[in-house]
Amino acid sequence: MKSAVITFPGSNCDRDMDVALKKFGFKNKMVWHGDIELPKSDIVVLPGGFSYGDYLRCGSMASKSKIMKAVLNFANTGGMVIGICNGFQILVETGLVPGALLRNKYLEFICKNVFVKINNKQNTYFKNIENDILELHIAHNEGNYFCTSDQLKEIQDNQQIALNYCSQNGEVEKKFNPNGSINNIAGVFNKKKNVLGMMPHPERMIDLSLSGEDGSLFFNNLINNIK
């Protein structure tokens, strides 16, 4: 299975993602933002970081970079694209997934482990995953998911909400919402579910001695689903 990770100026989770993908069997290629073509890939990853120094709005400059034309084309023809953290911010700026990511409600950079509940398993990303709740890491300043009430209804009706912040036992309540996101939303799909944007970092939870292994569940499941 082939993957591609895009490196933008200011990306800083691109190499972690490369390590994670390779660990679980992907043949990964790093792609520079100034390139115009993607290598043949089963999945394209927009990694976390601070692309273009978060100028203007997080992800806005990266969403207009040269490689994104190819990524948009890949996504619009059914290709799998996942954006993590800053990658999620880039995805909302391209319009591939609905909504926007605002400054965290309490104006602090949040860096901690959280629990997220998988809201929809009818897709290639989460199909067959045993757990309903994953412990993953978040590290962001702008992860406060926002969409209009019409958009919220639409993404609920289309089962586009991928992940919700929750307690260890899976209770999706306000007190387990780290950043003020509407309905505790931590990740959303596009309509066809081939594009996923999420704030938590699965690539940071692939080694039990360092962090945890719920990210391992995610990547293991992902490669098996793509095969």
């Binding site: 605002l102 400054r103 409600k105 309490y106 104006l107 406060n144 926002f146 003020g180």
Partner: peptide, 11 residues
């Protein structure tokens, strides 16, 4: 209008 502006609030 309906978008929260936490920075505005702090100011």
């Amino acid at each position: 209008k309906d978008v929260l502006d936490p920075q505005g609030k702090v100011i």
